[in-house]
Design a protein around this nucleic acid. Structure first.
Length: 731
DNA sequence: ACGTGGTCCTTTTTT
DNA sequence: AGGACCACGT
């Protein structure tokens, strides 16, 4: 690009298109800088420019560490910095990748074998479940996933409340056993879970003076993006990373902290100036992304939160279109409306990849996907990890993991009998006994299968597998794709899928082949990369990594995955009480605030068009249920909204493939509320947006003072001012 | 050892 | 409505 600002010839060029606050951030010279950057204020740009600025000031690129929230963001930053001499030597990546990087090089200093493999969530669950089986634990005392979240909670510094209630008899004892055995198994199998990557990296910096010194001497400046979503372990890593002359820059927005549930501590950003002395704070408040109406709507929602530090976003963009709130009859209609809107936008000349649909839970993508297909609109679901979590892909990777780490228990359990080798539960039980007796990893004990007392057939099966693995390990410095090919062919994995007449196996085969293709691509992209690196990349993909902004398709994703992105047109579906905010997060003020921040994140992704939909009824696993609009929709000032009700008029409406207009909406809001109010009578079952269902006992007052008494199922008897409450009648 | 069918349970978000 | 788990039969 001709006018790229990324040049060292004239560092001032790095600043020309920045506003005053952004410039202050980019050029700051002190030891610690906190950039509080509201949504759409250009923080990514500031961060990248700052790296370039530091390099222009004479810091060697390889002495810069940039921690991003996704690999995608790291790639993006590297791409921009490439224009600078040495720019590609900046270390850019996620915290987990940095942890892995340190441990791969220096782990042995603290007793971690550098040939470790990484355990993902599915693997974690399978390890825990196998502990339950081997130790005779009861899942009714404590669910394996709950044991796991407690283990994780404990490891990452335990922000927030304890995720699981251990007062249930047997739960505490079960947890202790699981936690202890889990740690032991990971250690003997040279496995690190996601939390370990951070925790052990921290321990490395704390316990090895040599490594700490080396790292501190290397990095002259550390930059961290999305600081509001870091946890205390990550903060401690930073504190241990900085040499006396090193600088640190963090960028974030407390209002966009959405990962408390996995240990993120908003306190990190709020207390940054106490953790790092001589901090200067720069506030970015000018929003370059959204129209004034969208911004006003979003601000109204976030303003309800009490735990925040005030900041005021402003935009010089025009008012823009009204934020549309659409009430649909049910979930299917809602999805059809979403597809219809996308089709309309497209007809108006919008690119499909400028349109995004966000949902609170991934399960909601299904309905939207169906509606889009029926409308003939191409779409893409952004869930990068999804591919790597498929059974067949995990199987293939498990083979590779065993090659890299012969002790990898999770990988071993996964494929020891896939395809069938006659090694069932009974055989594995015997192997476990042997492994425990010798204090070695399960997969290691497999080498002594003969001595375990397994059946002849099982021993033969295990030995066939071991021979294959040995053969591959003997391939000297082979690239990854051939390794995978030999494994999948030699094991009979390909053959099994090819010979199957199950339709699903067709696509499984394709997925496995796609993985091999991915491996080839990896080799091209990172010629230096070995098998361990490949496996690390595969283990640490993030959902956004696969996102292509120019796919030409409508983009579907969870709100969490949408973090950091922006789209001209945004649709938020499922804006209903108990769904968004999610029912599980109601009742605890801190969780409720996080839900609201999540909604705020969703809204602030939009540049020009924001449409929020909800359904009057929805099919849930409990059956067809009446739904109440999200309370968030009640705090948005009406003058920025356009409410449309497609549920009020009886008959279902067919919206064909982008044909025609939506049926004339009835307006709702004030009118409907009063209408509903006057039709209320004692004895009715009603639904309140905050208090849920209840029995209407009496009506009183008049005019604007009209009030009702309701005995709520879960909140007891309350008097409610009718003009404040959006009551709905339940059948 | 392994496939089948029935039952129960569950439903958030992800590196 | 879908998946995970168990019991049973081969």
């Amino acid at each position: 690009m001709l006018d790229s600002p990324y040049t060292l010839e004239d560092p001032e060029r790095l600043l020309v298109d920045l506003n005053a606050a952004q410039r202050r951030a980019v050029t700051h010279a002190g030891p610690a800088l906190l950039v509080v950057a509201g949504a759409g204020t250009g923080k990514t740009r500031v961060l990248t420019r700052r790296v370039a600025w530091l390099i222009a000031q004479g810091i060697e690129p390889w002495r810069v560490l940039a921690i991003t929230f996704t690999n995608k963001a790291a790639d993006e930053m590297r791409r921009r910095l490439e224009a600078l001499p040495g720019g590609s030597q900046v270390w850019a990546g996620t915290f987990h990748r940095f942890g892995s990087y340190l441990l791969r090089r220096h782990g042995d200093e603290i007793g971690i074998d550098t040939g470790f493999t990484i355990l993902d969530r599915d693997d974690q669950i399978s390890v825990v479940k196998s502990i339950y089986r081997d130790r005779g634990l009861e899942t009714s005392d404590l669910r394996p996933v709950d044991a796991l979240s407690m283990i994780s909670h404990r490891k990452n510094g335990g922000g927030g409340r304890t995720p699981v209630d251990l007062t249930h008899p047997g739960a505490a004892a079960t947890f202790d056993t699981v936690a202890e055995e889990y740690a032991r198994r990971l250690r003997t199998a040279q496995l690190l879970d996601f939390d370990d990557l951070l925790l052990e990296a921290l321990r490395l910096l704390q316990e090895s003076e040599a490594v700490a010194t080396q790292v501190r001497e290397r990095f002259a400046h550390v930059l961290v993006d999305e600081y509001q979503d870091t946890n205390v372990v990550q903060r401690d890593i930073l504190m241990n990373l900085l040499g006396p002359d090193a600088g640190i820059t963090v960028v974030g927005d407390p209002d966009q902290s959405i990962y408390r549930w996995r240990g993120a501590a908003v306190r990190n950003i709020l207390d940054f100036d106490q953790d790092f002395p001589e901090t200067e704070t720069v506030l970015l408040e000018r929003n370059y992304r959204s129209t004034a109406r969208i911004l006003a709507a979003a601000e109204a929602v976030i303003a309800v939160n009490r735990e925040r530090h005030e900041k005021r976003l402003y935009t010089e963009a025009g008012d823009g279109a009204a934020v549309r709130v659409i009430r649909a009859r049910n979930g299917e209609d809602e999805a059809r409306i979403a597809a219809h809107l996308a089709a309309t936008w497209q007809r108006e000349g919008r690119r499909l990849d400028h349109i995004a649909v966000f949902y609170r839970v991934n399960a909601m993508s299904r309905g939207v996907e169906m509606a889009l297909s029926q409308a003939g609109l191409p779409y893409v679901v952004v869930a990068g990890t999804e591919f790597f979590q498929r059974r067949e892909v995990k199987d293939a990777l498990a083979y590779a993991r065993l090659v890299a780490n012969p002790k990898d228990e999770a990988a071993f359990l996964r494929i020891v009998n896939t395809p069938r080798r006659g090694v069932g539960a009974a055989s594995l039980q015997k192997l476990r006994v042997l492994a425990d007796a010798r204090g070695i990893a399960l997969a290691e004990a497999a080498c002594s299968a003969r001595e375990s007392g397994m059946s002849k057939r099982a021993v033969a099966g295990v030995e066939r597998l071991l021979a294959l693995l040995d053969r591959v390990r003997a391939m000297p410095r082979a690239p990854v794709a051939p390794i995978l090919d030999v494994l999948l062919t030699g094991s009979g994995y390909y053959a099994t899928l090819e010979d199957s007449d199950d339709i699903l196996d067709r696509s499984r085969l394709e997925n496995v082949r796609e993985l091999v293709a991915y491996a080839r691509e990896f080799e091209k992209r990172e010629p230096e990369g070995d098998l361990a690196t490949f496996l690390e990349r595969a283990a640490l993909v993030s959902d956004q990594d696969g996102y292509d902004g120019e796919s030409g398709r409508v983009t579907l994703m969870s709100v969490h995955s949408a973090k950091g992105l922006e789209f001209p047109c945004v649709l938020i579906v499922g804006a209903e009480m108990n769904h968004f905010p999610h029912g599980r997060n109601l009742g605890d003020p801190a969780s409720e605030e996080e839900e609201r921040r999540l909604f705020y994140v969703a809204m602030t992704r939009a540049r020009e068009e924001l449409v929020i939909t909800h359904a009057a009824r929805r099919q849930t696993y409990m059956g067809d249920e009446p739904r109440v609009a999200s309370p968030y929709l009640n705090v948005i000032p009406e003058h920025v909204l356009a409410r449309e009700d497609h549920a009020a008029w009886g008959a279902p409406v067919e919206w064909g493939a982008g044909a025609g207009e939506l049926p004339p909406p009835s307006s709702y809001g004030e009118d409907i509320v009063r209408e509903t109010g006057s039709s209320l009578a004692p004895g009715m079952r009603v639904q309140h947006p905050y208090f849920g269902p209840g029995l209407l006992e009496s009506l009183g007052g008049d005019g604007s003072d009209e009030r009702v008494t309701i005995d709520f199922d879960t909140h007891g008897r309350k008097q409610i001012l009718l003009r404040h409450a959006r009551l709905e009648r339940l059948s």
